[in-house]
Write a protein that binds this DNA or RNA. Sequence first.
DNA 1: GCTGAAAGAGACGGCTC
DNA 2: GAGCCGTCTCTTTCAGC
Lengths: 147, 147
Amino acid sequence: MDDIDRELVALLQQDATQAYAALGKAVGLSAGAAHERVRKLRERGIIRRTTVDVDPAALGQGVLAFVMVESSAWMGESGAAFATIPEIQEAHIIAGSASVLVKVRTATTVQLQDVLRRLYAIDGVSGTQATVSLETFFERPVSPLVN
Amino acid sequence: MDDIDRELVALLQQDATQAYAALGKAVGLSAGAAHERVRKLRERGIIRRTTVDVDPAALGQGVLAFVMVESSAWMGESGAAFATIPEIQEAHIIAGSASVLVKVRTATTVQLQDVLRRLYAIDGVSGTQATVSLETFFERPVSPLVN
DNA sequence: GCTGAAAGAGACGGCTC
DNA sequence: GAGCCGTCTCTTTCAGC
């Protein structure tokens, strides 16, 4: 994992459809060498997968909310329970008063309410506190070049 | 945007490297027809870009935190200011006591502290409240199939 | 939306440093 | 171990239908 690898990752984050020849040129390598490095990055799990970035609004999911989930018990093994709710995009155990923070996308606030209802159905959940996003400034990939 | 389009988006989210022939087969279309639909999805901006999903820990960014940023003024035009901090992965205007919620990734908590310092340097920022994630259950793409 | 042919990209081997 | 350069295969792309 050297600087060239980091550059390759950054380039692929911007556009994963570009040819290895172009990638190689950008980092000063041949197409084959660039290909080899990217293959190893995938193999090592640094690049988890190649995916597409989708506009949530276009899928009719214009409402974004962050929900603090309070619990009366240790939630460390409850990941699967949260995963069964498809509207939940992320779930994290957090340090602080609430115990789990989830990121939720729905079409309407009525559907958001329904997600909250399903959250309460999870064992140990004792409360929720939803914060609705009014506008998203940006959402971007992790920057590999901060170091 | 019909059911086939939604299926195509879901398939591409799982693996954007697969061939159009395979995509077409999965949804009952020829390779050419599948390609045409995906092209239009990109053209319409429903698919924003093709990117790679990177393991943040592998990039040495093992610390994840959500920071509520309180402000003494309207922050509606401050998106660019937040964008200049590369450790900030997302920034949203929220309804609630704080006015902006940001998602931050750093290598260490010391660097997280430095991000907070840079947040305070933004015009109008009057306070921050950071919540550190202890464990991430999951982070996944928006589900196109919830409707 | 399908089919067929041309152009291009990716995968794999051997080879060198 | 990393990079380079062949070749072969598969995919993409664009035409006409």
